[in-house]
Design a protein around this nucleic acid. Structure first.
Lengths: 338, 338
DNA sequence: GGGATGACTGTGAACGTTAACAACAGGTCC
DNA sequence: GGACCTGTTGTTAACGTTCACAGTCATCCC
């Protein structure tokens, strides 16, 4: 004869009945509306506590048209760079009271990015962060679902979308100038894939530094960010007699280069100096510890959320921001005076 | 005198009017309900296309009580292991038509995990995956919001929650037996932090292998997964004359150990053999290339989603599954016969 | 004393979808 | 020819919240 236990969690109306007020008053308490009497508020809070009430965010999102969820599109979150950026984004978003919904792409094509954007827009996210280091991804941003605030991370000049990025050109310049300042005649380069904007930026910085010093730029060697591709480039470099300095576009490839040199009996830094890029946690313990250029991924993540939230809070369209985070040079022992 | 452009995107009723049917028929078309006449369906689809209608998933979630979103709680997604696992989870979830909402914890405490679980439950996720390699995280799972299907990854015996994990004990055993089979008298161990279940499992496997061979187990050296901690342990080991074989609980620490040995002039594998754990992409290019134990993080991610979806689809409570993924031994050149 | 003001609370209607049920047409069966 | 099904469509009512508005009461000021 006992009443049937209700399976469903309590709703606002249940709390209202328990506290002897209207559901609207419960809503006011929950939303910190000022005009609620102290004892009423207390009674409502007590009822909430007693019933174990939790507000239904889905219903709330339906009426407010805000989900307090941010979408993140990224590519291969297994890589240190993207993983760190996404981590920074997630931390910053949560600190600001937002959820983060993530889509990790496996393929790099424009269609994939568009699908991901549609997917997130369908879900009703309030804004989207696209970690789009490839040219193709950046292009897909151009036809973003209208009205959804967005920011591109490492996105180059992507239409009228706001951008947060690390100054890759400056990074390439720092690495190359360091090597030139050590007395090397020229600097070789193992570059990243050509559709990655970061790779292009580092190449540009390297070229600029060489040009400024009046040195010829050798043909860069192609890599795909993986240690293996660095290893293969390294084998090629080890065979050339005139190579004394190499700027490698990321630390993982630099590891491969170091390995190839070690196998060929080329001593680093005595015979050849090597500079990497990223400053992954491992770099300090390579043989030898790697001189590199650090990117502050945490700052990138925080800034991108900052830019995005400013866009969300501003009602009207605002002119797209562009925020550049400077890289820092990290000297270790893989480079030496010629 | 022109009509005011409506700012708001079209809703189902707009499509219905355009197609000359009721909104319910539109709903039926969208949900692939069988009883819709072919030409009616075509007319509706045409109207959807014309208006650029997109279904509002928030409204849908409110009435169906399913958000088609899965929550993921993880710890430090910058580390290779968690990042790879989360990546696998995300891929598998999306393939099954689910969104993924991620919370990355910075602190490891029980309260943090509980907050994250509450946070996700509030958002109305259909299920939760907790990548909980620490004991404290596993414990927090015990008082999970009731009624939310959940699975723990690397979670040990966590109350009555389903678990997917890699057989860490087996992995530790594989590494140690390999070293013993090469003729080493005993095997030293650089272990992970004591509140990590994975660290405990590897220690247990190591101990078991030594015990089975009738060898004494030296006191394990403490590490925190970082290359630096491995480096420090390595400096200690390099000073001891009788060390000929070391099993290091992850590849990053193994890198630190290799570095320390190199600095002290200890040759690997000629004087000391080293085995790591994880098989990160870099391991193959360490100096020397690292013999290690691979964990298939992709499989772990896929399995965890499989287990979770089975739980979601089964209405009633089902007995918690337990799925163990075997590790594989990866021989390279950092180990040699004594 | 009476109107204005302000603090507090309640009522009804959204939000955009799916679920439940009703209605209707056309066919089948005896 | 009527009862009965079956396929197709429409109508109405949820889902659980917030918003807009309308009350009610006490206070204040001239």
């Amino acid at each position: 004869m006992t009443a049937i236990q209700k399976q469903r969690p309590p709703v606002m109306a249940d709390v209202a009945k328990e506290a002897g007020v209207s559901h609207q008053t419960v809503s006011r308490v929950l939303n910190d509306h000022p005009n609620v009497r102290g004892d009423t508020r207390a009674r409502v809070l007590e009822a909430i506590d007693k019933l174990g009430y939790r507000r239904n965010l889905v219903a709330r999102a339906l009426v407010t048209r805000h989900s307090r969820t941010l979408g993140v599109v990224s590519f291969d979150t297994t890589l240190y760079g993207p993983a760190s950026t996404v981590y920074g984004i997630e931390q910053a978003a949560r600190a600001a009271g937002y959820f983060v919904s993530i889509v990790s792409l496996t393929s790099i094509d424009k269609a994939g990015v568009r699908d991901a954007l549609d997917y997130l827009a369908d879900q009703g996210v309030d804004g989207i962060v696209v970690v789009a280091p490839q040219r193709s991804a950046a292009e897909a941003l151009a036809d973003l679902p209208v009205g959804v605030p967005a920011v591109a991370v490492e996105g180059g000049q992507a239409g009228d979308v706001a951008v947060v990025c690390v100054d890759q050109v400056e990074g390439g310049r720092l690495a190359t100038e360091h090597l030139l300042s050590l007395g090397h005649e020229t600097v070789w380069h193992v570059r990243g894939p050509s559709d990655w904007l970061e790779a292009e930026g580092r190449v540009a910085g390297w070229r600029a530094a060489l040009a400024r010093a009046g040195r010829a730029a050798p043909e860069p060697l192609a890599g795909d960010w993986s240690p293996r591709s660095g290893y293969e480039a390294g084998r090629g470099l080890a065979r050339m007699a005139d190579v004394t300095a190499v700027f490698v576009a990321n630390d993982q490839m630099a590891l491969g280069v170091l390995r190839a040199f070690a196998e060929q009996g080329v001593k680093v830094p005595e015979q050849v100096s090597v500079v990497g890029f990223d400053d992954i946690p491992e770099s300090e313990f390579f043989s030898p510890p790697l001189t590199t250029v650090r990117q502050d991924f945490g700052a990138v993540g925080r800034h991108s959320i900052g830019v995005l939230l400013r866009q969300i809070e501003a009602d009207g369209p605002r002119e797209p921001e562009r925020l550049v985070v400077p890289p820092t040079f990290v000297p270790r022992v893989s480079t030496a005076r010629r």
